[in-house]
Design a protein around this nucleic acid. Structure first.
Lengths: 163, 163
DNA sequence: GGTAAGTAGCTTACCGCTAAGCTACTTACG
DNA sequence: CGTAAGTAGCTTAGCGGTAAGCTACTTACC
């Protein structure tokens, strides 16, 4: 169970040396969460690069894909799901439409709105990219047993509920 | 032990509906890590705003503070520690120097280099801000017992080592 | 001692995001 | 019916980051 010291251990040790009264337990959790998020984010970016899309663009097409047939959502639904402003959404849709992975059509029921749909090419690409992305994530988990992964998932669910 | 369904559970359920053969266990871990990192990052940004600095600027001054007296590091040491390019570092140092929280002096031993040091004002501010930041993080952990926090820390250390 | 390679920090160009403001349209209500 | 309020999507300005290139300086080697 005892593991090597890592970069976060070094930071908490430094704090203990100059401010021994501080409780650095929260730092030990969130410091690692930030680093894991950054490292894995970079790894995913690199993975999706093979498919010619960025991680943010992947998220858009993946959201449409997992919504099921007919793979159609409004820009507003997408920006709400992806926690993105409409400005950011417009930019992503522009690129993905230009790349031929999705298309924008007017909403027949509301002339203010649009419907965003995956193209056949987008569907084929995302089905491959999702598998590749999961494989990268799975590889990062090889140091943990299945039981540990389940335990970690439970603890993270609890933590996410509290933040 | 059974918890409510959260946003990540909804996403994995959607994937299961359209691609039941996919193993979404990695997604359940990293999806939550991304969300926790984003939510806590926003919360920290808001916390440090009270002290007139951004989270990135906090990290610079905090790195100097925890390095111990005489609270002096080179821009290169700082940018390496903070995983930032020299361009980004220059920008942060410019702002912090203008705000009077640190100062740049020539390195007496290497005429190419600089020494960055906290000012008295910077030291006082960071000692307050660190405490406030830890308090925000501690509050986010209230849903977990001390034992669970320790367990989570161990699992995250293991995961960080693998990514 | 002179030259080549490496290193430190700054500048510039660019990229993606947010915040705020815009137009166009729908909906609710007197 | 007409007006006010709300909503959808786009545009613009600004911010913070990276990547690449620059100068200045040190170090290693012949």
């Amino acid at each position: 169970m005892s593991e090597d010291k890592d970069a976060v251990d070094a930071i908490t040790a430094q704090w203990f040396a100059v401010r021994p009264e501080l409780d650095t337990a929260p730092m030990a959790v969130f410091g690692r969460i930030y680093r894991i998020a950054k490292a894995m984010g970079d790894a995913m970016e690199e993975c999706y690069q093979r498919f010619g899309i960025s991680r943010g663009e992947f998220d858009v097409v993946a959201t449409l894909r997992r919504s099921g047939a007919p793979y159609t959502l409004s820009p507003r639904q997408l920006s709400a799901t992806l926690m993105l402003t409409t400005g950011g959404m417009t930019g992503r849709l522009d690129k993905l439409e230009k790349a031929g992975l999705l298309c924008r059509k007017p909403d027949p029921h509301d002339r203010r709105g649009l419907q965003v749909t995956i193209t056949d090419r987008g569907l084929a690409l995302i089905d491959e990219a999702v598998g590749a992305g999961l494989e990268v994530q799975r590889a990062a988990l090889t140091g943990l047993t299945d039981e540990e992964v389940a335990q970690l998932t439970g603890l993270l669910r609890k933590l996410l509920a509290g933040v």
